[in-house]
Design a protein around this nucleic acid. Sequence first.
DNA 1: CTTGACCCTATAGTTACTACAGGGTGCATA
DNA 2: TATGCACCCTGTAGTAACTATAGGGTCAAG
Lengths: 132, 132
Amino acid sequence: MKIGALAKATGTKVETVRYYEKIGLLPRAARTTANYRDYGSDHLARLSFIRRARDLGFTLKALSELLTLSDDKEQSCEAVDDIASRHLAKIDQKIDDLTTLRSELDRVISACQHGTVGDCKIIETLAPRPLS
Amino acid sequence: MKIGALAKATGTKVETVRYYEKIGLLPRAARTTANYRDYGSDHLARLSFIRRARDLGFTLKALSELLTLSDDKEQSCEAVDDIASRHLAKIDQKIDDLTTLRSELDRVISACQHGTVGDCKIIETLAPRPLS
DNA sequence: CTTGACCCTATAGTTACTACAGGGTGCATA
DNA sequence: TATGCACCCTGTAGTAACTATAGGGTCAAG
C-alpha cells in the first residue's frame, strides 16, 4: 500500500508518516519503481501501535522505548509496566493541576461585574499591585 | 532593578524575560551605561501579570490580547470575560480528555500479569492485530 | 589584580508535528 | 494525444514557549 492508504488506515497525516520514518520510529519502506513508498502489514501494525500509544499520551521517547522492549518477547514485562505506570502518574498529576487551575480561573471569572475594563476584576486579579 | 532582580521577583528565568522582550510582550527597558537593562515598577507589574496569566494556562497570544485590552480602561470588560471563559472551556475539555485517557490506561496496566513481554497485555492492547 | 557573580548578543535546540515550495507519476477523460 | 487531477517525492522552514550554549563584557570584593 502507498503512503496515503497507510495514513488513512491509521488516521495519520501523510507528513506525519514520513516524519516517523525520518526520526527512525517507523522502518523505511520498500520503494516502487516510481520511488513511492510501499508498505506492508508489518508497517500497518507498527503504525497502529504508535498512534494508539500517542493517543494515550505517551511521548515519542517513551514510545520508542516501548517498541524496543516489545521486540524482545522473552524479556520480563516489568520495564513495560514501569513506563506505563510512570506515565499514569504523570497524567494524574496533570489532572490535579488542571483541576486546581480550573477552580481558580472560575473564581476569577465569577468576580466579573461586566463593567468597563477599568473595573475589570479579571484583569485586576491577574495583575497584582506591584510591591513597589 | 537589573534583569536578575526582576526575574527573581517574578519567579521567571532571566532568559525568559529577555525572550518576552524580544517578542514584544514586555516593553524594552532603559539601559545603564554598561548596557544592562534597567527595570522599573511598571515592568514588574506587567511581568507579574504575564506570569500569573501563564500560570493559569493562558497562551502568549491570549495574553497579549488581554494586555492590549487592559490598556483601554473605558472599554467594556466583555472581551476580557470572553477570553477567560473560552479558556475555561478549553481547560474543562482537557480535564475530560485526560480523565478518559486515565481510565483507559489504568485498565491497560491492570491487565499486566508481570510475565514476559511476549504475554504482555500492555503491549498487546497497544498493538491491535493488523486488519491485513 | 584576579575571582566570581552577574550582564550582553546571537544562535541553535527542544517536542511533535505541520506547511510550504518545487517538482515527478499515473490514470482517466476530452 | 493532451491535459487535468490526485497523488507521490525531497528538503526546508514554521509552530509554541521557552531553554541552553557560545563567546564575550562589567563590577564589586578580597
